[in-house]
């Protein structure tokens, strides 16, 4: 095996880029699930964010405005889900799946005029001094703002859930909505906010695909990234830092296998390609093998409809 032709710094840099969309979508979904809402519409929100961000970036010539538009587009779609599941009390799973299908169709419609258009490029934010460190500089400190933002977001979510009162309320709502309601917390309002945050993150992740990673608009371009983000949340056992590790692991496997192939290293491509899913199944088996441990991890009221008795 000749691995000398693979530059580890470049590999690490492309790993971070590959992991960013699923990490953003994953951290949003984590908050949503922590509040007790399983939103299977991540894929739909991501691709709507991808097309809205792309369209606005092209129209204004400013990628930053594109990212902001993507955040709002993802949030808008998430709130459709929120109203249907929280106010109209529809089934989460069915509504989430419908949201994915709706998002894919809507994005194709919005994107019709944007096929074959070149988006303005997002500037790389080379951190002074740090970016000049050999190897590490190129691997870690030569990225665009969104990559750093995604890591900051993980830290912020971790701190929010662990140290803030609002985070505690969110977790309470997710663990036992009846108890939280009895304590006087507004379950539906908390959940709507969590859902909106989930949509905003998914939209941002989608825009990262269409504006940075690929950079172009193509129908169906998320190609399953939303589902990987969902698997990622389970893999992370609803913990922010573990989600970061998982995203880099999942993204890393993809990038690593492509680079190994390009370097003529013979590897079993199929197995590497399916490994994120295998690992997720494995984690699911492990956390559900022990009742007490499962109860510790998964939010108690996940995927249960809340209806306050009058």
């Amino acid at each position: 095996m000749d691995l000398s032709s693979i530059n580890p710094a470049v590999l690490a840099a492309s790993l971070m880029v590959a992991a960013t969309p699923i990490m953003l979508a994953g951290i949003g979904e984590l908050i949503s699930e922590k509040s007790g809402v399983l939103n299977l519409g991540v894929e739909g929100m991501m691709i709507t964010g991808a097309v809205s961000g792309f369209a606005v970036a092209v129209m204004t010539g400013n990628p930053a405005l594109g990212f902001i538009a993507a955040v709002f587009a993802g949030m808008a779609l998430a709130l459709v889900f929120g109203v249907i599941t929280q106010v109209l009390l529809a089934n989460h799973v069915a509504t989430g799946l419908a949201l994915t299908l709706f998002g894919l169709g809507l994005s194709a419609l919005i994107g019709q005029g944007y096929v074959g258009v070149n988006p303005p490029r997002t500037a790389k934010l080379e951190i002074p001094l740090l970016a000049d460190i050999p190897v590490l500089g190129r691997a870690l400190f030569g990225h665009d703002l969104i990559v750093y933002l995604s890591i900051l977001l993980i830290a912020a979510v971790w701190a929010f859930l662990k140290f803030t009162r609002a985070g505690l309320i969110l977790r309470a709502v997710g663990e036992n909505h009846d108890a939280a309601h009895a304590l006087g917390y507004r379950v539906v309002r908390v959940r709507l906010m969590a859902i909106a945050f989930g949509g905003a993150c998914a939209g941002l992740g989608g825009a990262y695909l269409s504006l940075v990673r690929v950079p172009q608009w193509t129908e169906g371009m998320t190609a399953g990234a939303g589902w990987i983000a969902l698997a990622l949340v389970v893999f992370a056992a609803w913990r922010p830092w573990r989600l970061l590790v998982g995203a880099y692991l999942f993204g890393g496997i993809v990038v690593l296998q492509l680079n190994l192939q390009a370097a003529d290293v013979r590897i079993p491509v199929h197995y590497l390609a399916m490994s994120p899913y295998l690992i997720t199944i494995l984690v699911l088996v492990i956390i559900s093998s022990d009742r007490s441990r499962a109860a510790l991890n998964a939010p108690g009221s996940l995927n249960r409809t809340f209806h306050a008795a009058q």
């Binding site: 032709s5 693979i6 530059n7 470049v10 492309s14 590959a18 969309p21 695909l209 990673r213 690929v214 172009q216 193509t218 169906g220 371009m221 998320t222 190609a223 399953g224 990234a225 993809v254 990038v255 492509l258 680079n259 192939q261 390009a262 370097a263 003529d264 491509v269 199929h270 390609a273």
Partner: peptide
């Protein structure tokens, strides 16, 4: 020739990553 197999007909982000990996080589 350097060849990357994607095991997919259509996956823009992986195709982009593959293109980058090939350029790197």
């Amino acid at each position: 020739f350097r060849v990357i197999w994607l095991f997919s007909w259509f996956d823009p982000s992986q195709e982009a990553d593959a293109a980058n990996a090939l350029i790197e080589q």
